[in-house]
Simulated assay, not measured.
Amino acid sequence: MRLAFLLLFASTLLRAQSEIKWTVNLNTQQITQTDANVFKTLEQELVNFLNSRTWTDDVFQEEERIEATLFLTLSEATTANGDNEEIIPNRYTGTLAIQSARPIFGTGEVTPVLNYQDKRLEFTYEQFQAIQLSDQTFTSELSSIIGFYAYIVLGMDYDTFSALGGQPYFEQAQQLYNRLPAALLNSGGWTSAGKTNNRYLLLENLLSPRMLPMRRAAYTYHRLGLDQMLTDPLAARQNITLAIQDVQSANQVYPNSALVQSFVDAKREEIIQIYTGATGAEQNAIIEMLSRIDPSKAGSYREIRSGGSGAINRRQAGKR
């Protein structure tokens, strides 16, 4: 009886640990009139919410947890009052940058998976207000935004371990979107109107049949590429080339997509490092493809021929 109880207790403790190991950073330098203690509380509430919630039915060992960092840069929301602007109490705007990484099999290194910036952040928060997320109903703007990105991080991570493995988590993000009230659905961060990158377009990219090559590329690049580098580096690099070809295909049918831009932002330095040791023909092919996919950074990819300057982040990590 005691053994069974201890095993159950240990299992409960393990499941209470989030699959994602979150770091949260708040930049409030633009805040002028709100008590700074409000944001200390907000940061702690975000950390507690993110690191105590479980999002999947899978059990993650400590070394398997996804590493993710959330950067919020906030300012006070204002409204016009005659010729002046008036601060709206407890209302904040700003940007949210999110990054995630996963381990490379058999190494002490991790590789970036998601690198995305949300420039249309807006929410209401009162000090000591608990951040809660329901699977059935809308709770708040802030919890919806944070929950949405947690599902995106999970889905993109799972896509790197199995072909289209992140589908259930992208569908969870869609269900969260569907629970939003009409007023939010018409707001800048969530609206389906226009072509400006926002949460709606990121989710649409991930669920669109047009972007299946992009999702396939995540698996080919990571599981058949990076994870095989130690055992067969030539085949691994060839698979990474195939993945980049898929990225190019996705970019051709869906130009300037949020998902493609997130990929090149996350992988640019890593790709430069990988192809530094490739043949001249491989280098030329990759430089040509990536210059079309990411034209504003074409000069960076030409560094491949000169040895590059990128480096994969070296940190102790395991493999799920």
Results as ranks from 00 to 15, higher is better:
Glu122Ala: 15
Asn90Tyr: 00
Thr93Ile: 15
Ile87Leu: 07
Ser144Leu: 05
Thr78Pro: 00
Thr56Met: 07
Phe161Lys: 05
Arg53Lys: 14
Gln167Ser: 14
Gly108Glu: 12
Ser143Glu: 04
Val59Gln: 12
Phe105His: 13
Thr93Ser: 03
Leu133Asn: 05
Leu74Met: 08
Gln99Met: 05
Pro181Ser: 13
Ser143Asp: 07
Thr111His: 02
Asp57Cys: 01
Ile98Asn: 02
Met156Cys: 01
Phe161Ile: 13
Phe105Arg: 11
Gly165Gln: 10
Ala173Arg: 11
Tyr92Trp: 10
Gly165Ser: 09
Ser143Trp: 04
Ser100Asn: 06
Ala173Gly: 10
Gly106Gln: 12
Asn178Trp: 02
Thr107Ser: 12
Tyr92Phe: 15
Glu122Lys: 11
Ala77Ile: 02
Pro112Ser: 02
Thr78Glu: 14
Phe128Glu: 13
Phe138Lys: 04
Gln99Gly: 05
Arg91His: 14
Asp135Asn: 15
Asn51Ser: 14
Gly94Phe: 04
Val59Met: 12
Gln99Ala: 05
Glu126Thr: 14
Gln129Gly: 06
Ile131His: 13
Gly82His: 06
Thr79Val: 10
Ala173Phe: 08
Phe60Trp: 14
Tyr158Asp: 03
Gln175Lys: 12
Asn84Cys: 01
Val113Thr: 07
Gly165Pro: 07
Thr160Phe: 06
Thr78Arg: 13
Leu114Trp: 04
Leu74His: 06
Gly165Asp: 11
Phe161Arg: 07
Phe128Asp: 14
Thr79Trp: 00
Pro168His: 07
Gln136Phe: 12
Glu76Asn: 08
Asp118Arg: 10
Ile152Cys: 09
Ile146Pro: 02
Thr69Asn: 09
Ala183Thr: 15
Gln61Gly: 09
Val113Lys: 02
Glu122Trp: 03
Tyr92Lys: 09
Ile88Met: 07
Thr56Pro: 07
Ile145Thr: 13
Ser75Trp: 00
Arg91Leu: 11
Val110Gly: 08
Leu154Gln: 05
Asn90Ser: 01
Ile66Ala: 10
Phe123Tyr: 13
Arg65Met: 10
